[in-house]
Amino acid sequence: MKQIEELLAEYEIDYLYHMTYVDNLGSILLRGLLSRQQTCSQNLTYTDISDQEVQKRRSCKIVRGIPLHGYVPLYFNPRNPMLFVRKNLQSQIAILGIDPLVLLQPHSVFSDGNAACSNTVFYKDLSSLSRLNWKIIRQSIWYDQPDGKRIKCAEVLVYPQIAVRNILSVFCYSDEMVADIKKLRQDHLRIEVNRNLYF
């Protein structure tokens, strides 16, 4: 475990991140983070902030024998092209800080870019974190870099769900959002404003 913690520290992976509409938090903090496949099969209602054209591409993709929609998607850096496209909704988007040790779950994989792209490569062994372009993943600007948009959206895919206990923090756009989330009475959660994760 010490080696794993050292590896995560080397790449400054304090959290993995999942973005969601704040109104979804009640359900998430009850059931955990479910894959899109699970959410649909259980007929759960939620507000979707994703791009539907991108989701169509993702619906056709298989990663390591599992449909891409069977995984819960996380980002190494939430301040990425997906959030940029939804920046008009930022005041309503909560960013969940997930325990990076979900990388150790049996079917977890990670990618060197957006999972929907045909040229994205997927890895299982944590030693392959060295293959990712951390300069682009970490920096604030990606659009002036070759393939920057894809690389910036490097993902971690967790199958088939993420337990509530692995949701460590909720990062918010405003104090008003913090107040609303605290009404859910999840004492184990760290809830704070962090505008550095937003645009």
Rank of each mutant, 00 (worst) to 15 (best):
N77Y: 01
L197N: 07
H69A: 08
V85S: 14
F76A: 05
P67R: 05
E53T: 07
K152S: 01
M177R: 00
V156T: 07
L83R: 06
S169H: 11
Q145K: 09
L25V: 05
Q90C: 10
D51K: 09
K183T: 09
Y46H: 14
L33T: 07
S50M: 08
I151L: 05
Q145I: 15
I28H: 06
Q38E: 08
I181F: 11
T20R: 06
E176T: 13
L168P: 03
S128K: 08
L16W: 03
R86W: 09
I181H: 10
L89I: 04
N114P: 10
S130T: 04
N166E: 13
V85C: 09
L68S: 12
Q139C: 11
I162Q: 09
R79K: 12
Q139R: 13
L168S: 07
H18S: 08
P81A: 03
E53P: 04
M82G: 02
V109E: 01
I167E: 05
T45M: 06
K61S: 12
S41I: 08
S140L: 14
E10C: 01
N43P: 02
P78E: 03
P160M: 12
V121R: 15
S127R: 04
Q3H: 15
R86V: 11
I28V: 12
L101W: 11
V158T: 03
A115F: 00
W134F: 10
N166S: 14
E176W: 08
L34P: 03
N80K: 06
Q42C: 09
L74N: 05
L89H: 05
S91K: 09
S169Q: 10
V63F: 03
V156M: 02
